[in-house]
Design a binder for these strands. Structure first.
Lengths: 150, 150
DNA sequence: TTATATCCTACTAAACCAATCGGAATTTGT
DNA sequence: ACAAATTCCGATTGGTTTAGTAGGATATAA
């Protein structure tokens, strides 16, 4: 049960843009260096974010990418669904309200996957880019934000 | 972002056992027929559930599998984690409290994945086999249980 | 002793993942 | 006009994972 690198890198790129593109476009080269990712691979992912209206691109020298909206208006769920496809822990939860497999009897287990799907969507749709970079502004302290862990 | 068939089939098998093993062991052959799954493939999965203490096996003719505990005491999360491994939407959330990548700066995005992980675990650890088969006892009505959907 | 089961280890075909490669098109600065 | 920087685009690739299949060995009831 893993997200692929697509969603993970995508979120990293968006956060990086939010942190760095305050004045002018940011090249993928610099994002790749800061985030320690393959520039070529990002070239494959980021155009999808552009087509989805999450970033804007400026071509040519000194070009690069910019967020298309304010960090407060971009939710992690949007980024993930663009790069990973709809969140559907099993196939039959892909479309809402559809009935799934051709099982003759009522499919009992679907309830589980629907609840998982909805709960993931709730989480990722409740966190904006602004929420994430707010944390990073406390840079240097390195506090543990995850006090819910063991 | 999918669970593999392992987790899905595993839950199906456990539900099938809960529904059918009230008196005596159930063969994988019959489970496979009812659930329309490959018997041989189940032979690969179900022993893992046995080693994890979720089912008991009885070998030989008229043998088969039984739940090792009451349906009220078996949670979907247990089944899934046995067959899919720990729920960790990205690698660095695999162990609790561990810090992840060797990023020099604090990893902002990890917060997202930790919250997703915890929310999935909360859901699957709140649904027991008993909860699922309770629904199926209303068989025949075929009501839509998912009124939270569009 | 036969049929029915679980148990166990390999093997495999297909799909998917995470890139890499090689260039075309666009824009800025000199 | 030209070079450098950059996005854009399609093809290819090596490795891993998935979802099984194959072929038996072992155990037990009838």
């Amino acid at each position: 049960m893993r997200f692929s690198t697509r969603g993970r890198y995508g979120v990293q790129v968006m956060v990086d843009l939010a942190q760095n593109s305050t004045e002018g476009p940011i090249s993928l080269k610099s994002v790749a260096e800061r985030q320690k990712l393959s520039e070529h691979y990002l070239e494959q992912l980021v155009p999808e974010l552009r087509k989805a209206g999450l970033v804007k691109s400026i071509r040519g020298a000194q070009g690069g990418y910019l967020l298309a909206k304010k960090p407060e208006e971009i939710y992690i769920g949007d980024v993930i669904r663009v790069l990973e496809g709809p969140i559907a822990p099993v196939e039959c939860t892909d479309q809402y309200g559809d009935d799934c497999c051709e099982k003759t009897e009522f499919c009992v287990t679907r309830e589980v996957w629907v609840k998982v799907r909805d709960s993931i969507n709730d989480v990722v749709d409740s966190i904006s880019l602004a929420d994430l970079i707010k944390d990073s502004e406390k840079e240097g302290e390195k506090v543990n934000l995850f006090d819910d862990e063991v």
